[in-house]
């Protein structure tokens, strides 16, 4: 192979390489764009009930994710309209704090039995989940209404004490 041929090959390799680098960059940009736009459109602010009530004015209309302890006595269900309402009591969101206070089961228990805890009324339209019971942990996504009631679109429940693997049960969104 003479030198001109080698040079030709080299330059060909170079254009090839640019072609692939540009293609690769385009794909990366597309993926980054997908992630960023989807994140912005679907971000849910995770808050405790305490935070929710202190920042009420800033968050109206936003998608929120709230965790709380279900107060069994407040559960009301109207099977005619499939309207479920109940109250949840504030529990800390940080697992370290939960551990320090003796684990999730204990935290939920004290939250429910302490009437001075901030509480939040929740309304959910749909099937009553099997795991909805006193001292279960409810994780809800939805929006805070102007009336101070949390309108949940999705409801996950977890009962920490009974089984090792309490599976979160999902009610449709």
């Amino acid at each position: 192979m003479d030198t001109s041929n080698i040079e030709k090959n080299l330059s060909k390799n170079k254009t090839n390489r640019t072609k692939f680098i540009i293609g690769g960059l385009l794909i990366i940009i597309a993926i980054v764009y997908l992630i960023v736009s989807s994140t912005q459109a679907n971000a849910q602010y995770f808050m405790t009930i305490e935070e929710l009530q202190s920042k009420q004015s800033q968050i109206s209309g936003r998608d929120l994710r709230i965790s709380g302890a279900v107060i069994g006595g407040t559960i009301q269900y109207n099977p005619q309209t499939l309207t479920l309402s109940f109250e949840v009591a504030n529990v800390p969101a940080d697992n370290k704090i939960i551990d320090e206070q003796g684990g999730l089961a204990k935290v939920l228990h004290t939250a429910v039995s302490d009437p001075s805890r901030p509480r939040l009324k929740v309304i959910y339209q749909g099937v009553k989940p099997d795991l909805l019971q006193n001292e279960a942990q409810a994780i809800m996504t939805g929006k805070l209404g102007d009336d101070g009631v949390f309108y949940a679109q999705e409801l996950l429940l977890k009962c920490p004490t009974k089984y090792e693997d309490a599976i979160p049960q999902q009610a449709g969104g």
């Binding site: 992630i35 679907n42 849910q44 994710r65």
Partner: peptide
């Protein structure tokens, strides 16, 4: 300083084109 989560719609929207 604010915990923000993403739910199923995020995954659906971002992975569907892929």
């Amino acid at each position: 300083g604010q915990k923000v989560t993403v739910g199923p719609p995020f995954y659906e929207q971002a992975t569907a084109p892929l």
